[in-house]
C-alpha cells in the first residue's frame, strides 16, 4: 500500500472509509437484498447483478449495523464478486505519500483493513478486500 493510487471515499455502517478503486468492478444503485435461508455468516443475502446472484456483505460481521431494514443507497461491487452496501459516496481521493498507519488494536474493523490513511487531519480506514474475503471464509469454516 505504499504506492500512490486512487481510493473511493465511501460511508458504510455509519463509518467513512476508503477503498482502492482498482479493487472495484463497478458501483451500482442499491436494490433490496434478498436474504438466503440459513445463509452464511457475514452475508446478508444476494442481489441479482448481470444475471447472476451477487452476495452482499453484512457489516455486522465487523460490528457494524447489519442494515437489513432498508436497501443500501449504493452497492460497490468488488472484483471477487462481493457487494458492499454503502450509505453514500463522497468521491475519490489519491493516496497521500507517507503510506498507511496501523489501526488501533481495539478497532473492530482491524481484521479487514490495510491500514489508516491520513487525509485532511483525520485517519480514514482503508479496506483491504483480500482480508475481508479471508475473514468471510474463516467465518464459514467455524460455522
Amino acid at each position: 500500500m505504499s504506492e500512490s493510487r486512487i481510493l473511493l471515499h465511501a460511508k458504510a455502517a455509519g463509518r467513512a472509509f476508503l477503498l482502492p478503486v482498482s479493487e472495484l468492478r463497478e458501483v451500482v444503485p442499491g436494490v433490496p437484498v434478498t436474504p438466503i435461508p440459513s445463509g452464511p455468516p457475514g452475508i446478508q443475502g444476494v442481489v441479482l447483478h448481470h444475471g447472476e446472484f451477487l452476495p452482499v456483505l453484512d457489516w455486522g460481521v465487523v460490528g457494524g449495523d447489519s442494515g437489513h431494514a432498508a436497501p443500501p443507497a449504493v452497492l460497490a461491487v468488488l472484483r471477487p464478486r462481493l457487494g458492499l452496501p454503502l450509505e453514500g459516496l463522497a468521491g475519490t481521493v489519491e493516496t497521500p505519500e507517507g503510506g498507511l498507519n496501523d489501526p488501533p488494536a481495539e478497532d473492530a474493523w482491524r481484521p479487514i483493513l490495510a491500514g489508516l490513511c491520513r487525509l485532511e487531519n483525520q485517519d480514514l480506514p482503508v479496506l483491504d478486500p483480500d482480508r475481508l474475503l479471508a475473514l468471510l471464509h474463516r467465518l464459514r469454516k467455524v460455522r
Binding site: P40, V46, F53
Partner: peptide, 10 residues
C-alpha cells in the same frame, strides 16, 4: 449461488 453465499440445503 456463488461460493461466498453457499447455504446448506440450498
Amino acid at each position: 449461488l456463488p461460493e461466498l453465499a453457499h447455504a446448506p440445503g440450498i
